[in-house]
């Protein structure tokens, strides 16, 4: 187990280094010059003095390898640079915005788990009836609906026509708890469709796989009821791949919520990034992409570790 953990941890560190390097490379290898981008994009015609000042401010006036070392030196100390717009440390803003993005992601993942697993079991249990195609069809539809389409239609129906929920905005939970939940409802519902469909499908597939196994046949043969076979025997094994999928989704949602945050004007991480793009505030853009990617790596690490804890067969390979 210790060897597994160490190897997995080493792999995650390697991945984070690769990701951070790729982001660094991308900023330097893309045809656009960051200093030019800061000064107004490809159409701008800044004076040479302006370019020199901005390059120095961004640390672009030293050789590339030195920039690379400086970049990791700063990252190691948790320094993500300062916003070009207002000079605030990027890490500070990320710390402020991250919880608000989590406010969207955590309920979404919880709901998709609490609804998706039972629905997946039902679909697998009633494989040969009309229930399975209906549930699977709904899942396929859920995959195919983008967040902004669901969100826009929800706003149209529940906010503009029925006036049950405000169309957008965020309030602090500690100040107005009820209003906070009113504003949380529509974005969370819009975000839930995709992950719910994935959880449902994964549960169904892996449940069907388990129900075809010899051990479930043996359990049935010795006269155990359907309930016990499904919930006590098959479900435990069937849930393992579901854990992985839920972990992956959790990681993906950091970015997936960008559309919901834009549509519902939710002041989270991605909203910050979006504004930064508009004014080409590239340390902020870089910070958000880096944070999202690192969260993705960390969540996958946690998923793998929990998988190994749940499934003794994994630990020894």
């Amino acid at each position: 187990m210790r060897r597994f953990l160490l190897r997995r941890l080493g792999m995650s560190v390697l991945l984070m280094w690769l990701v951070a390097s790729l982001i660094f490379l991308m900023i330097h290898a893309l045809p656009g010059d960051p200093a030019m981008a800061v000064l107004g994009g490809g159409d701008a015609s800044p004076t040479p003095e302006q370019l020199i000042t901005v390059r120095a401010k961004l640390g672009l006036d030293v050789p590339l390898y030195e920039q690379y070392l400086n970049y990791f030196g700063r990252l190691a100390r948790g320094n993500l640079g300062e916003s070009l717009l207002n000079g605030r440390p990027v890490a500070l803003d990320l710390g402020l915005r991250l919880p608000r993005t989590l406010q969207l992601i955590i309920p979404t993942v919880m709901i998709s788990l609490l609804l998706g697993v039972p629905l997946g079991i039902i679909a697998a249990k009633f494989r040969k009836t009309w229930v399975d195609p209906v549930v699977s069809g709904i899942a396929l539809l859920g995959f195919s609906l983008p967040v902004f389409v669901v969100g826009t239609l929800l706003v149209l129906i529940f906010s503009l026509k029925l006036k049950w929920f405000p169309p957008s905005g965020w309030v602090d939970f500690s100040e107005q708890p009820l209003e906070f939940f009113r504003r949380l409802t529509l974005p969370v519902v819009a975000l839930t469709f995709g992950p719910l469909a994935t959880t449902m499908r994964m549960t169904r597939t892996s449940m069907l796989e388990q129900l075809n196994m010899d051990y479930t046949r043996t359990a049935r043969a010795k006269g155990l009821s359907d309930r016990i076979v499904i919930y006590r025997h098959a479900l435990r094994n069937a849930l393992l791949p579901v854990v992985t999928v839920v972990g992956l989704q959790f990681g993906n949602m950091f970015a997936g919520s960008v559309l919901a945050e834009y549509l519902f004007n939710w002041p989270g991480l991605n909203n910050l990034m979006f504004r930064a793009i508009g004014v080409r505030d590239y340390p902020v853009v870089q910070g958000v992409v880096l944070l999202s990617s690192v969260m993705f790596v960390l969540i996958n690490l946690l998923t793998d570790v929990s998988y190994a804890l749940l499934n003794p067969r994994i630990r020894y390979d």
Partner: peptide, 16 residues
């Protein structure tokens, strides 16, 4: 590991 939509947004920040 890169979140697709964020990476795409980052790319179009630097390029047209």
């Amino acid at each position: 590991c890169f979140p697709p939509i964020l990476l795409a947004l980052m790319v179009v920040t630097f390029m047209k």
